[in-house]
Design a binder for these strands. Structure first.
Lengths: 222, 222, 222, 222
DNA sequence: GATGAATGAGTATTCATTCAT
DNA sequence: GATGAATGAATACTCATTCAT
């Protein structure tokens, strides 16, 4: 979506180095998206038209490359959140935001592998929270302000709901790529407090700090 | 959960062989559950206290071992479904069934990997469907008969909902192993038609045949 | 060809043990003949309808089993040689003997593997020489006595010629199983001294002792 | 025989890479020649003084390594055939060509294994035929033109005769590496038509197409 | 004696990572 | 800086042989 997926490290790279960096990220994004994270870095390098050595010059190891892509996805999602915040109808905004999220995630095998199975030690996770959490909170708050969305919904619930829906989405992707709409509707119906009676949500939501910890400390990829 | 995970099809094995078989299955279950399906069979063998050769004597290849565990899980889940059908309150039964399902699935990294990323050509998929689908249908139908569960819910929706919830469950397992209860409540609220107005579910549910196709034809494990 | 392939070891075995021994030999003969010596002993045992353990009770190791089969083949060939010696026309006898030899060998992948690539340490080789060499010598001598076969042909040349022809035979077996007849004719024409002038055969033939040494000391199978 | 076994198709390798490539080919040639094709690539790598990974970097798999060696042998033999065609006496050329062939083949366990037991689906077989067949045909035709070599000999007979003789040669290699000269003489005597009467060769020779099919479609190596 | 269970070294192959050119 | 060559540990699977039942 963006030309430059991320801003890169501290001092700016030489022009050609930066171009290679972008090429690598683009190639990795493509290949991990389609075939998952098990694709070898040799493959990524070939796709990018550079040597593996170059990949390692730009990224300490495979994990760092993946983490960098992750930042890119966070940015993309943040941009989507920002657009949602500009929508006049907060309820529609929430719905639309979920749709965007799911379509992005469902198509991305590597990202889902990452979210569901990967370890996260990188400091980049903080970035995700800092960048993303306030926007999501705002989306929720705005929707709740209409009085039609249950009050006990919390910002950190949103990534979970997105993850859940995208699980369903990917699961049936080949045969019925739209099936997740059923479950989004179900959830939305559960989220709306306009219904006659709503079961109070049990257990407290994850605090932002807990959310970050969760993202950091997954079971090891290997 | 059970002492013997499966009885095996042909003539009974020698006592010691059966013991080793169970040891292997137990070791594999443990290790795949905790660390996913990428654990090597050497590791499984070590964990089981046998040589690799012994593993291969009992299971043609890694897939067969995994399949056998899968059958075991299906049987366990089917037993749970049967118990749900014996519960007096159909609504509570549905809720309880989801709870059991999620707790089983959330803790099992390998099983979730299998469901979400593995290829399935084996005839065992048919087994899963044959064994499982009628029970699930019955659970749904019973709940709908109370008039309190929306009529447009369909049997094949259940595995999706289970999968979705277990995604959330696993994701936060370390920090907040109970967080999924929030989302189960949300979904249940969406499922109950006792609310004042319900959004009709968009797109038709997967037919049983589609469901089987989905289970069979996932992207390849490798 | 024979019911009992070999006479077996010293003291006679119990009836059932002997039956198993024969079954194993028959199974091994079939399977090695068709698919070569790389077939596993498990396979042989299955084919024979016994356990592997039984194979190892009767034969010290795979080599001994193979050696025993080899003895069987030697006996078969010796029988053929004897029949050749009973034929009225010594020249025809020589030709016929070659034909029999080649047809037996060409069809037997395992035996050819053995002759061409195997190690031979077993004492059984002596047996081959003792049993076989005098017959072959006699066939040659008789043919030479007609005056039509070159005098510088020697008994030990015969196994070589057989081996050579069977190489050609097996090589084209799928497409043209009879092609060896061309080369047999060529050799026979070379063998006949009735031609106007014959090139004296260079280098002396292998002495019987040398022949035995050759058979013993091949490069290792593995 | 040559320093560089083959030049490789694409752009030239880096100096060090090319050196390793040659080392690997040399090691493989040595080890396959002496101990046959069952030697592991680990062994080849050790012999070459490189890691296995390096072998796999240069050759997609074991087959490709073997094929490359095979091409080298074909080229060597073709060069020999070309030299034979430059010899003034066509009869002597034929004889010399056989000598060279046999000495090359007899010493090479792996090559003979390949010829006699391996499958060949690769396009390299075509190469062998294209490169080799015209030369051999010419050698035969030239010899027949002298009137002293039988007219019913055909180009495709030559590889068979070579194979046959090398079988004998290898068989006795340890004890009497020259014994094949006896059988070459025998065959040459059979080949010369200057003898008073010659038995017409039975069954037609393999056509070039049949020959290629034979080379392609051997029983599988495994 | 017979069985087949158990063993583990051995095989081809892959891939993250390092390093010489 | 860039390249791609080199490395070797790791993985799934096989099979000759030994040994408990």
């Amino acid at each position: 979506m963006d030309t430059k997926i991320d801003a890169g490290p501290e001092r700016p790279l030489r022009r050609d180095a930066e171009r290679n960096r972008q090429r690598i990220l683009a190639a990795a994004a493509e290949v991990f998206t389609e075939r998952g994270l098990d694709v070898s870095l040799d493959e990524v390098a070939r796709q990018a038209g550079v040597g593996v050595g170059t990949v390692y010059r730009r990224f300490a190891d495979k994990d760092e490359l993946i983490d960098t892509l992750f930042i890119g996805y966070v940015n993309n999602m943040a941009a989507i959140a920002e657009r949602a915040l500009e929508m006049p109808d907060p309820e529609e905004a929430l719905y639309w935001f979920f749709e965007q999220w799911i379509e992005a995630l469902a198509a991305n095998r590597g990202l889902r592998q990452l979210l569901m199975f990967a370890t996260y030690a990188g400091d980049r996770v903080s970035y995700a929270r800092t960048r993303f959490a306030p926007l999501v909170n705002e989306i929720v708050t705005r929707a709740q302000a209409t009085g039609r969305v249950r009050q006990d919904l919390y910002g950190t619930d949103i990534p979970f709901i997105g993850l859940m829906l995208s699980s369903a989405a990917e699961y049936a992707q080949q045969m019925r790529p739209d099936i997740w709409r059923r479950y989004l509707t179900l959830l939305i119906d559960g989220i709306y407090s306009s219904r006659s009676k709503t079961t109070p949500l049990p257990v407290s939501p994850l605090s932002p700090l807990e959310m970050e910890t969760v993202m950091r400390g997954r079971a090891p990829r290997r």
